[in-house]
Deep mutational scan, measured.
Amino acid sequence: DYEVGESVTVMDGPFATLPATISEVNAEQQKLKVLVSIFGRETPVELTFGQVSKI
């Protein structure tokens, strides 16, 4: 299970290999909103559970 505030690594898509912090969890739809730090700015990205891995 994923929790808000948890650190994960993006495994898929254009942000693969980047660390991210979970900002929202939708367990019903198996989706997460995460904040990816790009060029010093936090960018919100919506991903599925399968696109991230716990650190």
Rank of each mutant, 00 (worst) to 15 (best):
D1R: 12
D1H: 14
D1V: 13
Y2C: 04
Y2S: 01
Y2W: 13
Y2Q: 01
E3L: 12
E3P: 03
V4R: 06
V4N: 04
V4Q: 05
G5C: 06
E6K: 05
E6W: 07
E6V: 05
E6M: 14
S7W: 15
S7Q: 14
S7D: 08
S7I: 15
S7G: 08
V8G: 01
V8M: 02
V8K: 00
V8E: 00
T9L: 15
T9R: 13
T9A: 06
T9Q: 10
T9E: 07
V10K: 00
V10F: 03
M11N: 10
M11W: 06
D12Y: 14
D12I: 12
D12N: 10
D12M: 12
G13Q: 02
G13L: 02
P14Y: 07
P14E: 09
P14W: 07
P14T: 07
P14V: 08
P14G: 04
F15R: 02
A16M: 08
A16W: 05
T17V: 04
T17E: 08
L18P: 00
L18W: 14
A20H: 02
T21H: 06
T21P: 02
T21I: 15
I22A: 02
I22N: 00
I22M: 01
I22Q: 01
I22H: 00
E24N: 07
E24S: 09
E24C: 09
V25L: 06
N26T: 05
N26A: 06
N26H: 11
N26D: 12
N26W: 14
N26K: 07
A27L: 13
E28P: 10
E28I: 10
E28S: 11
E28R: 10
E28M: 11
Q29M: 11
Q30F: 09
Q30T: 06
K31G: 04
K31N: 06
L32E: 00
L32T: 00
L32W: 01
K33T: 14
V34T: 03
V34M: 03
V34C: 09
V34L: 08
V36R: 00
V36S: 01
V36N: 01
S37V: 15
S37I: 15
I38M: 09
I38G: 07
F39M: 12
F39E: 11
F39A: 11
F39V: 06
G40Y: 04
G40A: 04
G40N: 07
G40I: 03
R41H: 11
R41F: 11
R41P: 05
E42M: 11
E42I: 13
E42P: 11
E42N: 09
T43F: 15
T43D: 06
T43Y: 15
T43P: 03
V45C: 07
V45K: 03
E46F: 09
L47P: 00
L47F: 07
L47V: 10
T48E: 10
T48Y: 12
T48D: 12
T48C: 10
G50V: 09
G50D: 13
G50E: 12
G50A: 14
G50W: 14
G50T: 12
Q51L: 04
Q51N: 05
Q51F: 04
V52M: 02
S53M: 12
S53W: 07
S53Q: 13
S53V: 11
K54A: 06
K54E: 03
K54N: 05
I55H: 10
I55A: 10
I55M: 12
I55Q: 10
